[in-house]
């Protein structure tokens, strides 16, 4: 089939309700929707503070059709560990327990708890939906914010000048059984990875790039297209790492130039050709390093 037909690979079950409070075009609900489709109704969600704290709906609402616990910012992995332990103690070995955190709750404030859970190999799946800044609080930089990006705390005159933290490598370094990066623009790949993760015991980490139209300063309808570009141009490669050692690419990354991706986003508007060339250079370099990992292991 010339069209990449994915409908038969996306489970039909819906465990996310309409009426949630995500901004139009937000990638985060698509990510949750797909993940829950892959996991099914026997799933419990530990949700530290993030955009999803809002998306899930204010009390007395819930947009999820699975149990959900709203928790403190830095506790996703720890709360999920506790839930899982409780289920085990009561003989429920079937329900999947996940933590669902943003990039702030994962890369920054929640990293300690995540590292702890990963090191203990807690039997949870940790999802980070990454919109590359503190979007819920109004676009402040996080350690997931890419080099060169504007945020309200990295104004255009002094944009973010550190590269995005390599979260997948950090998690791989914990030698957890499964770590992967995924994208809302590749639903079939995402679903496949979640299903695979579900079948593995131990800590599993899935990092999902999820564009934020207001934070990236893009049009609502562009979010999926940009997420896709980020994969095609190798800014956000889609990978799997097993036991911290076996790295592989899960989709094609044609290696298109980064420029259209950068130019289409208002958060990079202040960048000139030289800066974009620098981003390209960094992406190329990292790609080479990833290729080495794929070829030779870590």
């Amino acid at each position: 089939m010339s069209q990449i037909l994915i409908k038969d690979r996306i489970p039909r079950e819906e465990l996310l309700d309409s009426g949630h409070l995500a901004c139009p075009g937000c990638g985060a609900p698509i990510a949750m929707r797909l993940v829950l489709k892959a996991l099914g109704e026997k799933t419990m969600v530990a949700l530290p503070a993030c955009c999803w704290s809002i998306i899930a709906g204010p009390w007395p609402q819930s947009s999820l059709r699975v149990p959900l616990f709203h928790s403190a910012f830095e506790t996703g992995a720890a709360v999920a560990s506790g839930i899982k332990a409780a289920l085990e103690m009561r003989g429920d070995l079937e329900t999947t327990v996940i933590a669902w955190a943003g990039d702030g709750g994962t890369f920054d404030i929640g990293l300690q708890a995540l590292s702890g859970a990963a090191e203990r190999n807690e039997d949870i799946i940790y999802f980070c939906y990454d919109n590359e800044a503190y979007m819920n609080t109004g676009v402040q930089r996080s350690s997931a914010t890419p080099w060169g990006a504007w945020t309200t705390t990295t104004p255009a005159e002094h944009p973010e000048m550190r590269p995005k933290k390599d979260m997948l490598a950090i998690m791989a370094a914990h030698r957890i059984p499964y770590a992967a990066s995924a994208s809302v623009a590749y639903p079939d790949d995402l679903v496949e990875k979640v299903k695979k993760a579900k079948g593995i015991k131990g800590t599993r980490f899935i990092h999902i790039l999820s564009p934020c139209p207001p934070g990236w300063k893009i049009a609502d309808e562009e979010s999926i297209a940009l997420a896709r570009l980020a994969v095609r141009n190798r800014v956000f490669p889609l990978m799997e790492v097993e036991n911290g050692e076996r790295w592989r690419f899960s989709v094609d990354h044609p290696g298109e130039p980064v420029e259209p991706y950068i130019r289409r986003q208002g958060r990079f508007r202040h960048l000139g050709d030289a800066e974009i060339a620098e981003i390209q250079r960094a992406v190329d370099e990292r790609w080479k390093s990833l290729e080495r990992r794929v070829q030779h292991g870590t």
Binding site: M44, E74, A78, A80, G82, A85, A113, G116
Partner: peptide, 28 residues
Amino acid sequence: LPARFIKVESEHSAMAACIGASVAGVRT
């Protein structure tokens, strides 16, 4: 004592884990 002992990396996570377990219905 047939219990799960989660040896966390901080007291913050200790309480967070207890909270998770407690909201899942067990004695913590």
